[in-house]
Design a protein around this nucleic acid. Structure first.
Lengths: 345, 345
DNA sequence: TCTTAGCACTTGTATCGTTTGAGTGCTAAA
DNA sequence: TTTAGCACTCAAACGATACAAGTGCTAAGA
């Protein structure tokens, strides 16, 4: 249990340190705090906070910095999201104000906006209906030897790919493949489709084509791309600002991490309605030791929920960031509802 | 004019420095050179080379490093491409050996291979017929409210984009737009199309649709994407290895540079049949001051010419790099000829 | 005329003791 | 419980010194 005064001190330590990056000492705090006590008193309280593992020293006679547990306590109990700066709201509204013809444009644009507002790295995922289903597959011949495969899901995702075909493939054969896939697979969820694709489909298709592997590969390719959660990243380069001792190796693993869909999905974790903050080594991934991740969902009613996130140094101004993320999720939800309303009815 | 001995010394200075990164002194050279002269003699020769601006000191009593002019002389007159290491050839052939269904896969894979072989950053452009022409445009309705726009050029490039449409648009209208574009624009080069698009097309289309802007925007979008030279990058992260004093700002501008299609096209420059080397500030772009760029074309006969390039620190082992680039351009050309042969006839 | 030994000189790097200043913990008095 | 005072710790900055690598120049030898 912390006393009121201890909370006040912890809050001040976090604030100061996130602003300046310098360990904060008792004297500075005494001057700054609203209550009037001597630095010696502060020292006693700080010793108590240190005993509880909330703050720590960088060396035996230094000022204190928050420990991971200290940040955690601060985020859970002490912080209050800053109201958005008026200018920030303008930025959001004008950047989202344009006319969009694709959900993906809005989502990708959002990543950029978020990274600009925060000067950190931002991630956005589009609203996702879990269990989206295959609603159609086509092979469209283009010119002489090219075919485009197009896969559509019932949630409106479109995935496509162009590939070259040998002349010996006829239009009839393409038709047959398409019909087979549509007859057998439409309406199933994507994982179900993937599973069937490995089980009974190859046998059936053998009736239509002598060498079907090519087509099944293509279809499988497009399918796995569609099943993967697509996300957008904004402000990649901002990570360079926080490389501390410019540790090239850890930077590299960080970048490899954020470019791998699967990994980042793990890191972001399960959606929750509250804004969630993960601090430093609370995340299992070692490359993120000195970073914090703020994630939030946004809700587009029957169109599902999406996610936004920002990744910055553990020492980030949490109150401001929470304010930005909180406001942005709402603006984005509004924008998307508008968008769907326009195209839905 | 350089004497034989001076050339020998310059070559040794470049070799040594690119290998070790340490300025090279007269004593080390005396020990290493095939001829038997004292360090004092070497010093005299080095003074001469310095007078000609080919080498320079980092401070008044240091060993010498090559100047940009020195590298240039070395590359133009002294270097001989290393033969490929046997292992490297294996890597190339097995990485290019697989079965591909798209040119782009081969080209993108090539960027990865090149960056792996060199541990620098690699660029690849696919073979390009200059003046490729619009050969078709389609609008394919997908599900309820989505349409995919597909543009095909006579060189086989396909560019596409999905977008949402309001329900009030009818299939007939789509048909009309497509017919208009195909009637009026097919057969023209892409720049011509772009130009017409701004001139007389909007007026004509107004006869078919009340609010045509949306469609023209989409078409324009896809068109500009198709007109842009697409390139692939491999080993982006390798740039981090050469950040010297970890100058974050210059790293950032470097990355912005290689992500901008237009800029990088400028940097790569005009294709030439010889392998070309650009050294440090020979490139106008300031972010590249400490880098060198090796570019080479590859020739796929009637399918045009493409380009490969690697970007690494000015202090790179040129002989090895020239060997790799030289060998790779040929392997790639071979692979592509095979590929076209299979799909062409 | 070219080469070389020798030497004085320059400079970056490393090492080491010193000082300074910010900050701590502890004690004892208010 | 608070606070003044004091001894103590440690990082950072600083200066002196030594060292090593390398240079240019001079003068003698081939």
């Amino acid at each position: 249990m912390l006393s009121e005064r201890q909370m006040m001190i912890l809050r001040a330590v976090v604030r100061d340190f996130t602003n300046t990056g310098v360990p904060v000492g008792s004297k500075a705090l005494a001057k700054q705090l609203p209550i009037h006590v001597s630095s010696a008193t502060i020292r006693n309280e700080m010793a108590a906070l240190e005993d509880q593992g909330l703050i720590k020293k960088t060396h035996s006679s230094s000022g204190r910095i928050p420990s991971v547990e200290g940040y955690r306590y601060y985020v859970d109990n002490l912080v209050k999201p800053d109201p958005l700066r008026p200018n920030d709201m303008d930025v959001i509204q004008s950047s989202l104000g344009g006319d969009f013809h694709k959900i993906d444009e809005i989502i990708s644009q959002s990543a950029t906006i978020l990274s600009n507002l925060t000067s950190y790295t931002a991630f956005t995922l589009k609203p996702e209906l879990k269990d989206s289903r295959l609603s159609g597959f086509r092979l469209v011949p283009l010119g002489k030897r090219q075919v485009m495969a197009i896969l559509v899901t019932d949630s409106g995702d479109v995935e496509n790919q162009t590939f070259d075909v040998n002349e010996t493939v006829t239009g009839d054969q393409l038709e047959a493949v398409v019909r087979l896939i549509n007859d057998q697979l439409v309406g199933l969820t994507l994982p179900e489709v993937l599973q069937k694709l490995q089980a009974d489909i190859p046998m059936k298709i053998a009736n239509y084509l002598q060498s079907p592997e090519g087509f099944l590969d293509i279809f499988g390719d497009v399918l796995t791309r569609a099943a993967k959660e697509q996300f957008y990243v904004g402000g990649r380069l901002n990570l360079l600002n926080f490389s501390e001792d410019s540790d090239v190796d850890s930077l590299k693993s960080l970048y490899s991490l954020i470019d791998k869909t699967d990994d980042i999905a793990n890191v972001l974790g399960q959606p929750s309605d509250k804004i969630s903050v993960q601090i430093g080594n609370e995340m299992t991934n070692d490359a993120l030791r000195n970073f914090s991740l703020i994630t939030a969902t946004y809700d587009v009613n029957q169109h599902g929920k999406g996610m936004i996130a920002i990744l910055g140094p553990t020492r980030m101004p949490y109150s401001r960031m929470l304010g930005i993320v909180g406001a942005f999720r709402e603006e984005l939800a509004k924008k998307l509802l508008d968008y769907y309303r326009f195209y839905d009815e």
